[in-house]
């Protein structure tokens, strides 16, 4: 039952899974962690990403990763639009807490239902030459359907981290929640910066959606399971720290993988949620950081 073989494979599978989780949580880390906008619809946008990738994959034969990347401008625009509505309706009038939460909850539900209306409730999957193949290194199995998302996710996370820390607008995004005065001294318009940040947050959902459907088949209500995961990761990661988000994602990935291997697959979904509840109760400021 318990062997080095099983253990090391569970660990590697967990790391791969965790890397992918980082991609899913990345957008929320910016939107919730930096802008303090509780976008619980983020996973639903990821599912939307999966379905547009599915559409271009079956109709045009596009590679899923490529399709995900190509859809980022569209998702960016969608994000800017959603933020503008949110700003006009809730943030400007100071009603973001109760009404804003209900707003995103409604958006999440609408996205799910629209996808059901178009595609039904069946599982959908994409095709690519590498899906189904496995790279073997010694006793370790590295299935490409996990490896490709992992590498893409790492590239995206690295890119976003670089953008946030090294560019002018990136630093403005980090400043928008922490130091409004500094932002104004920099001459940046906070609303524009927030639109941009929200747009980037949703753009990552397009790629994350592509990765999700590479890993396995997707159905419309899948997003709900990811709500707990992404919030667990972002909160555990210390709200908006990219390094923290990555670390928390890997931690959750490995924990889920171990539970799946050694306890049973039906318990794996509850891992992230339990971690989330535990984090909220014991250490709400997360692994790294600020409350």
């Amino acid at each position: 039952m318990f062997s080095i073989d099983l253990l090391s494979n569970a660990l590697v599978a967990g790391l791969l899974l965790g890397g992918f989780y980082a991609a899913v949580a990345l957008g929320l880390s910016i939107v919730f962690g930096q802008l303090d906008i509780v976008n619980i619809a983020h996973p639903a946008f990821v599912i939307l990403g999966s379905y547009v990738v599915y559409m271009t994959n079956t109709a045009l034969g596009w590679d899923p990763v490529l399709a995900g990347v190509l859809f980022t401008p569209l998702f960016f625009a969608l994000g800017v639009a959603v933020y503008r509505i949110y700003y006009a309706g809730f943030e400007r009038t100071g009603r973001e807490s109760l009404a804003g939460l209900a707003f995103f909850f409604g958006i999440m539900f609408i996205l799910e239902v629209v996808i059901i209306l178009i595609y039904g409730v069946d599982y959908r999957l994409v095709e690519a030459a590498y899906i189904g193949q496995t790279l073997r290194i010694g006793i370790i199995d590295l299935p490409y359907r996990m490896l490709v998302p992992f590498i893409t996710a790492m590239a995206m996370t690295g890119g976003i981290a670089f953008y946030l820390s090294r560019t002018f607008t990136g630093r403005a995004i980090l400043a928008v929640s922490q130091d409004r005065l500094a932002l104004e001294l920099m001459g940046a318009n906070p609303i524009r910066i927030k639109s941009l940040a929200f747009g980037i947050g949703l753009a990552t959902a397009a790629v994350a959606g592509a990765l999700l459907i590479i890993i396995g088949p997707v159905e419309p209500s899948f997003g709900r399971l990811y709500i707990g995961r992404v919030f667990a990761i972002v909160i555990l990661g210390g709200m908006g720290s990219i390094k923290g988000t990555l670390l928390a994602a890997l931690l959750i990935g490995v924990s889920e993988s171990f539970v799946q291997t050694f306890v049973g697959p039906s318990w794996a979904d509850a891992v992230a949620f339990s971690v989330l509840l535990l984090t909220l109760v014991v250490r709400p400021q997360g692994l790294y950081g600020r409350l």
Binding site: A270, L277, L280
Partner: peptide
């Protein structure tokens, strides 16, 4: 308040998993 909202969502899923098992 937002943490309470998120926690309730998480709680529902944990309970569902418990019932499934």
């Amino acid at each position: 308040g937002v943490y309470f909202a998120i926690a309730t969502l998480a709680m529902a899923i944990v309970l569902e998993t418990l019932m499934v098992n």
